[in-house]
Structure formats: structure tokens, C-alpha cells
Amino acid sequence: MIEIRKVSKWYGQFQVLTDCSTRIEKGEVVVVCGPSGSGKSTLIKCVNGLESFQEGEVTVNGISVGDPKTDLPRLRSHVGMVFQHFELFPHMTITENLAIGQVKVLGRGKDEAIERGLRLLERVGLKSQAGKYPGQLSGGQQQRVAIARALAMDPICMLFDEPTSALDPEMINEVLDVMVELANEGMTMMVVTHEMGFARKVADRVIFMDQGCIVEDATKDEFFGTPRSERAQLFLSKILSH
């Protein structure tokens, strides 16, 4: 489904990604973790072309992301993405947020888009908030709306870029619950997160990144059993100790 081959990226002189390679199969849930500044957010943004890269190749469903001939908006419309800071559009109501992509990108009728949006809103438990503006919702609620907005596009896979790290602790679970449910339904997911509980529950594989490299790429059991690299062990001990 998603294939990343030998991707490298520089900001000027500074190399942020070095020779990253991995594959994510259909229906797989892959968690990407690592210390801050390790390049994991940059890597996930390369998958739908929000960040460009200088070397290597990324393909989604066989379509090359880096190819200048690729219709990126079309590709992105099939790849759902959820951001750390939610990025709902503050000047639109929740319903409008859910409809805008369906109407402007997929060309759906307005009524159809709203109906579909409301169904997904119900699914994330926020149907009563449909007429409000994002600024009137809590962080956890906003993030659930953001997930619904991505799902409304009927994505073939979902990218999550630290979806819970901007949330207050009491709101993290309401978002994780939605994600677990999604994973159990068989959605293909790539998730950058520090939530190891989530990884243990639903991940198929865990990728550990440090200083722009993929240091570890293992099944969940291997990773939590005995990480092969020292850096991953150190990282895990820091994260799991509290």
C-alpha cells in the first residue's frame, strides 16, 4: 500500500532524513516512534507529499509521490491525514469542515456531503456539535472532528502525525478510542505517536527513528520484547518509566 524506498531529505546543509525505507501493507497498522527531532513527522509528511524529498521514492498504491507528473491533490484526497494541532478550519462550522473536501475535491453534492459528514460525526460521538465552530470545542473534540473530516473522503489509508501530543491528558483516550476502533476495522494506518499503550494494543509493527534514520523496524512483539538497538532500549525505558 505505502512503500518508502531510500528516502533522504535535506534542509540546506542539514540532513533530516537518511536512507529511510519501509513498507506498509494493506490493513496494517504501523506505529512510528522516536525522540523529538528524529524526523518522524517529516517522514510521514513525505508520504502524501506535504514535504518534498531530494532522494529516493515513495509510492502510495503504486503511484509515485515524488514524480512531478503525479496529480498530488488527487492522491492526497485518497490519503487521510490527522495533524498534531488538529488544523480544523476556524472560520467554518464543524459541518462545513466535514463537507469542504467532499464538495470541492470529490465533487459530491452538498447534501450528500453533509449527510455523510454527519454520519461520521455521529460515529466519533459528536453529532450534537455539528453547528458549532472549532474554537468552541475542546481539543479532544476537535481532534475527533479532524479524524471524521479525513474519513469523509473515503481514504484508502490514514496518516496520524502525533494526534494526541497537543492534548490535555484527560482527552487523550477519547481520541485513542476512535483510532483503536478504526484499526480494528482493518484501516491501513501509519501513526507517529509516543502512546506505547496504543502500539501494544493495535500495532502490527513498530518503527523506531533517531537522527533521521530508521533504526528499528520490527513486529510489535519483537520490539517490546527485546529491541535490538541500544538507542531504542534507552528510548523505551524513558517512555515506559512514567
Binding site: 509528511k45 502524501n48 506535504l50 498530488l72 491533490p73 488527487r74 492522491l75 492526497r76 484526497s77 485518497h78 490519503v79 487521510g80 491525514m81 495533524f83 498534531q84 494541532h85 488544523e87 480544523l88 478550519f89 476556524p90 472560520h91 469542504i100 473536501g101 470541492k104 475535491v105 470529490l106 473530516r149 479525513a150 473522503m153
Partner: peptide, 24 residues
């Protein structure tokens, strides 16, 4: 992130300006 969110749901750059960035 607003620009990225616009692009991520498949809007083109001009569409992202038109519907997401400029209104705000």
C-alpha cells in the same frame, strides 16, 4: 498546518488559498 491540512484533503494550492487561508 492550515495550509498543509488544506492540501492534505486534496485541495489544490489555489483552492487552499481560496477556502482556507484567505478567509482567515
Amino acid at each position: 498546518g492550515q495550509r498543509m491540512a488544506g492540501l492534505a484533503i486534496g485541495l489544490t494550492l489555489p483552492q487552499t488559498y481560496r477556502y482556507v487561508i484567505l478567509p482567515m
